[in-house]
Amino acid sequence: MSTLTTATPGVAAPDAARRAPRGARRTEPIYYLFLLPSLVLFTLAIPVPALVGIFFSFTNSVGIGDWNFIGLTNYAVAFRDPAIWQSYLFTFGFALVTVLVVNVAAFLLAVGLTSRIRLKVGLRAVYVIPMVVSGIIIAYVFSYLFSNSLPAAGEALGIPFLSTSLLANPDLAWVAIVLVTAWQAVPGTLLIYIAGLLAIPGDVYEAAEIDGATPAQRLTRITLPLVAGYVVINVILGFKNFLNAYDIIVGLTNGGPGTATRSIAMTIITGFNGGDYAYQMANATIFFVVTVLIAFLQLSVTRGRNAL
């Protein structure tokens, strides 16, 4: 078993081998030229607007006309704004639950779709379809299902719980959002898990089988440890995406009922539509800092495990 674990990070090993001789040679200048267009575009599209936005978060600008510096006022007010607190609480709770749901579902599906079953290829295609449909369309379709089809079914079957729309329940609307987000996010995660599972050499399983390992033992003792790196990737990517939750919520509940499902991104957007530009820029800056901190946390937790 121990020999296996050292040999398994098959992805990382050849990478390190390739890296070794690179320092010896001088880098061709042409490579920098290749980088230039995307670097320029990236700078113009992301860091420059971000810096402008951070600048304005220290002003009282409404987007047009004159403005003044007001120091940290926006930040001071934002930290005491219950609407902002609520949106952070909702978004982080939502992201945590969704990451869990998506990864469990995708992993189980991936195990199923890589085992010896009929119609494997066709099924894989079916499960990947949600990935190519735009979020807002998915949200509108599900909104119809939750508001009309499910209640109709609930009424016909005499299940009172189903006969009122999930979306109209302030305490449970988030469950609907988790379900729909997961439905869309599972395929991407699933693909990564399938790739991870296919990378596990078959002889490992053969050896385990000869040693008398049960299927459950094979799953927990071999499969899971060997795809651990992929779990980390999926969790990090997923969490990052779910923190930015926007389109599906807009289509499903538009933040409602009341303000029960307003995400951070939705709160920030109101600053542009509502003439509260500088204040929500401060909120966006706080959000940025928070996500950077999370990124560092995730990196430090996963570093040194050959995960990334």
């Binding site: 219950p82 609407a83 109209a168 302030p170 538009n254 933040g255 409602g256 009922p257 009341g258 303000t259 307003r262 109101t270 600053g271 539509n273 509502g274 003439g275 509260d276 204040y279």
Partner: peptide, 25 residues
């Protein structure tokens, strides 16, 4: 002012939230 989410608040009342609570918010 549009920056105050008054529409969701009124929706909350229609869904049965306490009027006084919403008005205090």
């Amino acid at each position: 002012p549009k920056t105050i989410p008054v529409m969701p608040y009124t929706q909350g009342i229609a869904f049965g939230e306490d009027v006084d609570d919403v008005m205090r918010t």
